[in-house]
């Protein structure tokens, strides 16, 4: 008998899984419905005309207001980074989905066979430099920005930063 497994959450970025989007390949843009799998970083595209699921490897894609860029080469597994800020420098987020499987014991009333979770890590890409991972702390951000004067808003004396504060700091650095 076929076994049905039920997981809490979804491996996909959006719900509904397919949302209106734009693929960017060699500076050309194509509209299609896009599903982005955060576990595998596979991008699926469905055109209105045929509704067939195509696995694609765009240089970048947009879903709604979110834009993702591919950073790995054509070899190796693709990794897409969400663009949070794009000036001279960039602030990127890598969103990684994970399936945590739970053992569903017969005598226990576990509702799910597993849970999809997502983790975000942040990167700063300075002009003509490789992206560098940062944590949401003043120390970590200043290490990458390598700035003599503190570009972070003076009201934030705490060491922990929010994502908007990280973006603000990089935008201030860009001037």
């Amino acid at each position: 008998t076929p076994k049905t497994t039920v997981y809490l959450g979804s491996p996909y970025l959006t719900f509904p899984v397919y949302e209106d989007g734009v693929l960017e390949v060699n500076h050309y843009q194509t509209s299609c419905k896009i599903a982005f799998n955060l576990v595998t970083h596979q991008v699926l595209c469905r055109f209105e005309s045929d509704s067939i699921e195509h696995a694609v490897l765009p240089d970048a894609f947009r879903v709604g207001a979110q834009r993702f860029v591919r950073k790995s080469g054509p070899q190796g597994p693709p990794v897409y980074y969400k663009v949070l800020y794009a000036g001279k420098s960039k602030v990127l987020a890598q969103i990684k989905g994970t399936l945590q499987e739970t053992k569903r014991e017969a005598y226990r009333l576990e509702e799910f066979d597993g849970i999809y979770t997502r983790q975000e890590r942040y990167l700063i890409e300075l002009e003509n430099k490789a992206p560098q991972a940062v944590t949401l702390s003043r120390k970590s951000v200043l290490r990458v920005l390598d700035h003599t004067s503190d570009p972070l808003p003076s009201t934030t004396l705490k060491n922990k930063l929010t994502v908007p504060e990280l973006i603000e700091a990089v935008a201030a650095y860009d001037g």
Binding site: P2, V6, Y7, L8, G9
Partner: peptide, 17 residues
């Protein structure tokens, strides 16, 4: 697999076989 909202409005992924 199918992604949908369950009876409680939670997002779930259901896979068969």
């Amino acid at each position: 697999c199918v992604v949908k909202n369950d009876y409680a409005g939670r997002l779930v992924t259901i896979c068969n076989g």
